[in-house]
Design a protein around this nucleic acid. Sequence first.
DNA 1: CTTACAAGTTGAAGCCACTTGAGGTTCAAG
DNA 2: CTTGAACCTCAAGTGGCTTCAACTTGTAAG
Lengths: 150, 150
Amino acid sequence: MSGYKIGELAERTRTTASTIRYYEQIGLLRRPDRQEGNQRRYGEDDVARLTFIRRGRAFGFSIEQVRTLASLVQDRSRSCMEARDIAQAHLADVRAKLRELKALEKSIAVFVAACDSECAGGPGPDCVILDDLSVSGPADRSGCCKAPSA
Amino acid sequence: MSGYKIGELAERTRTTASTIRYYEQIGLLRRPDRQEGNQRRYGEDDVARLTFIRRGRAFGFSIEQVRTLASLVQDRSRSCMEARDIAQAHLADVRAKLRELKALEKSIAVFVAACDSECAGGPGPDCVILDDLSVSGPADRSGCCKAPSA
DNA sequence: CTTACAAGTTGAAGCCACTTGAGGTTCAAG
DNA sequence: CTTGAACCTCAAGTGGCTTCAACTTGTAAG
């Protein structure tokens, strides 16, 4: 009678029933009580734990990192500074990815802009932009979609 | 006698022999000629194609996107604008990820800073920061590592 | 020539974090 | 009572490789 069904828990934590069953399978969530008809029933503590887990995942922590963080929540005596260390290590990763992604965005934007400006006249048969991806040196975009001179 | 061995090709394109065999298996790279002893031998065109592929992957394009881009290189008659479209769609994805990642970085930085400033006195048994991850509302960090008042 | 060892070969399995599918049971509304 | 949504289990699929096991080939030193 009481408690949330798996779909309700999923809705409350913005995830899916499948994911919840998966977390149970890998031991990240406890096995809940079952109703008469064998359906899982969850309580408020499950909502809290799963919210914690999803929050951590949304923060980009791996399942194992989340597992550690969650265990720190249980064992309060040594939690805060350890959590800080995990988070800080993760922050370094995130910042590295951020730098990479910024460089990537710039490169692609340049690529698109080159296509727009230099190939705007129509699809030439000698577009050099794609060639740039095949060679190792810095790009030389002069001559993209060049007139059939050669 | 002539041509690169798989390890040499790997080195030149900054990848691994395993990855090269994998690309061959999924049909992204052609099956190369074999030497007497059954070892693969590659030429300059293979270096160029694999460089293209790795470049595209480093740009965050999926294998299938790279496959399409590579086929556009072959069929020059309609390449440039199609490549532009793929790149532009991808650019939108990258920018979305970039926004997400920026928000993420800020969140974690705030988390770490809160740990530093509010838990600096030592690991209190009632740290509230970890609780923040378990509830759905906005964080209230007053009382982190609070004195054993209650 | 032998010995050793690096680098190559194959096919299959493992990784992460889920998602999807098949095939069945249970629940709640009309 | 019937319908259809939501639940159940177990297995396999996803992407993009990496790793493993067990073997063969190539190469340099002694």
